[in-house]
């Protein structure tokens, strides 16, 4: 049975954190709430207090400086979608948001809410992992930064603890390198949840040599997987080799498939997912190569 709850709308992060500290587990931060409403309806969560944090100014907006892109956790997917022309990584993230839920839900749903829901099939999560992003968490004891791949602990489980909330995501930038990212997924109809997904992020120096590489897989384990051993293989290669049929690329596909620990469920079989990991990773790398050529 659905719980009955009170509703508050704090004006600042500190106020929100204090409210949560007062009431503990029966109080829940509420972002866009598009997942939370469903969890509440199904009594997965039974809050007594809903702390609506969407209108806290400090949690909103996208800022770019020399060293990083900052995305406020309460930025809506719709707003992220509209940030495409501000940076090439935002362009990739914008393309990802177009695949997420529906236009009518993207106006409500937030980036932070999507990450905190910690779905293994979430679309943005592998991209942030591949981009080496950090999550900035705010809590009663102050702020801390967590690497994105360490933020996810399991299905619907994150490293948020002790009344913390997700404040922002920071994607590091290196002004000396050119960076691109790509995302691919298997879906059925145009609105869907990923059956398998993958994201790659490649940085190259002025000679076109790969200097940084992130490869992340989704929907093939309880958490987003980072395929570090595959990433290492690509370092030092020329970007021109990415589009070609090279032994390293085959090895990357294989290592990714080995890393994957998929299950069979209503959406797809484990075997299909494992096979598709290879295709998705290859296609994200090819996409990166095409972007770098452009």
């Amino acid at each position: 049975m659905r719980s009955e709850f009170q509703y508050r709308r704090p004006a600042s992060i500190d106020e929100a954190v204090a409210m949560k500290a007062d009431l503990g587990t029966t109080a829940m931060y509420w972002a866009g709430g598009t997942d939370m409403v469903l969890h509440w309806m199904r009594s997965i969560h039974s809050p007594e207090l809903c702390i609506d944090i969407t209108r806290i100014e400090g949690l909103r907006g996208i800022e770019i400086d020399r060293d990083s892109i900052r995305i406020g956790a309460m930025t809506s997917l719709d707003e992220l979608d509209r940030s495409a022309d501000r940076h090439c990584l935002l362009n990739t993230l914008s393309d990802i948001t177009k695949l997420m839920c529906t236009p009518q839900t993207r106006t409500i749903a937030t980036v932070g809410g999507n990450l905190c829901n910690a779905s293994p099939a979430a679309d943005l999560s592998p991209a942030f992992v591949a981009m080496n992003a950090d999550a900035v968490l705010a809590g009663p004891k102050g702020r801390r930064r967590v690497r994105m791949e360490e933020f996810f602990l399991g299905v619907n489980k994150t490293s948020l603890s002790g009344g913390e909330l997700l404040e922002e995501i920071r994607i590091p930038l290196n002004p000396d390198l050119k960076v691109v990212a790509s995302y691919r997924r298997i879906d059925r109809t145009v609105v869907d949840i990923a059956l398998v997904n993958a994201s790659s992020c490649i940085s190259v120096d002025s000679d076109g040599v790969i200097n940084g590489c992130g490869i992340a897989l989704g929907a093939v384990a309880p958490v987003i997987l980072r395929v570090s051993d595959a990433e290492t293989l690509l370092l030092g290669l020329s970007v021109r080799e990415l589009g070609r049929d090279r032994e390293e690329l085959q090895k990357v596909e294989e290592l990714s498939a080995i890393a994957a620990k998929p299950i069979s469920d209503v959406r797809a079989s484990a075997e299909y997912r494992r096979q598709m990991v290879k295709v998705m990773v290859r296609r994200t790398l090819q996409d990166c190569a095409i972007q770098l050529k452009a």
């Binding site: 709308r9 709430g33 009518q104 106006t107 409500i108």
Partner: peptide, 18 residues
């Protein structure tokens, strides 16, 4: 779907206070 400040929203996922 309803329009909230001109943008389409799935009102079944919104709390009334939102």
């Amino acid at each position: 779907t309803v329009l909230v400040d001109g943008r389409p929203c799935t009102s079944c996922l919104m709390l009334v206070n939102q």
